[in-house]
């Protein structure tokens, strides 16, 4: 089967049905290993046990940007090829991205209070991530506000691509401005600065959260395709002459 064949909604539904159980099992296994390793990870010599918050904060922060990246690629699919499955992918990803961004903000806040002495600081990294969260909510509101899916798809795709400007701002905010947030310690030139005792559980948890995203995204895309089928059948029903 060619990759382009998967862009057919019916084929996608069949494939999603086959893949979902495997993705779910992989997610559970990765989380089991990651949480076990996180529990066994030693306390940091400066941060103590609060370093364990890193194992959920950092994967969610990465995913908050990754999901917007997925939505940006989908937005190109909507605008350039006008493929309905591209909009389905973007619409299904938005609530997941919002949830990951929310978790990045909340867990960061809970990590910041004991380490920085404050839950929140209006610095560049925290503010740009908050803006990302608000953009997710705005996109979800846009999809709900416009009745016609094809009109909503184009508007959402344009907004998604404009919003992608925020991704490099988030990534490099700690380099461009003097912020309270620490600089990159994993994805950086010269390799990670984290000790292996922290790096391994962090990477396993990151892969686990990514597997969770893939699983939920497949399921949410399947739901969105079914929702559009329900809508078209309801329109067909409404257009039939009364008996």
């Amino acid at each position: 089967m060619a990759l382009i064949d998967l862009a057919n909604p019916t084929r996608f539904l069949a494939l999603a049905g086959r893949l979902l159980p495997w993705c779910a099992v992989a997610t559970v296994m990765l989380f089991a290993i990651g949480l076990y390793q996180s529990w066994l990870a030693p306390d940091d010599y400066q941060q103590g046990a609060t370093v364990k918050i890193m194992f959920i904060h950092v994967p969610n922060a990465w995913l908050s940007m990754f999901v917007w990246g997925v939505m940006s690629v989908s937005a190109l699919g909507t605008l350039v090829w006008r493929h309905p499955l591209a909009d389905v992918a973007a619409k299904a990803a938005a609530p997941l991205g919002a949830a990951f961004t929310f978790l990045a903000l909340v867990t960061g806040s809970l990590w910041g209070r004991p380490m920085w002495g404050t839950y929140w600081e209006w610095d560049a990294r925290l503010t740009s991530v908050l803006i990302l969260f608000l953009m997710y909510l705005g996109l979800m509101a846009l999809w709900r506000a416009v009745d016609d899916p094809s009109r909503a798809a184009r508007a959402a795709a344009i907004l998604t691509l404009v919003g992608a400007i925020n991704l490099p701002i988030i990534k490099f905010s700690v380099d461009w401005w003097n912020t309270l947030h620490q600089g990159a310690s994993v994805l950086r030139m010269g390799g990670p600065t984290l000790d292996r005792a922290f790096l391994v559980p962090l990477l396993v948890m990151a892969v686990g959260f990514t597997a969770l995203f893939v699983t939920l995204h497949l399921a949410a895309m399947r739901n969105e395709i079914l929702r559009r089928r329900v809508r078209s059948l309801q329109m067909l029903q409404a257009s039939r002459p009364a008996a």
């Binding site: 364990k52 949830a99 939920l216």
Partner: peptide
């Protein structure tokens, strides 16, 4: 001394993941 922060962070993350799973299943 920071157990409350660590436990809260993990509990909130677990709750959000459960809500996402519940949303996807009920919607389907």
């Amino acid at each position: 001394p920071y157990a409350a922060f660590v436990v809260s962070a993990y509990a909130i993350a677990a709750a959000v993941v459960m809500i996402l799973i519940g949303w996807v299943v009920t919607d389907y």
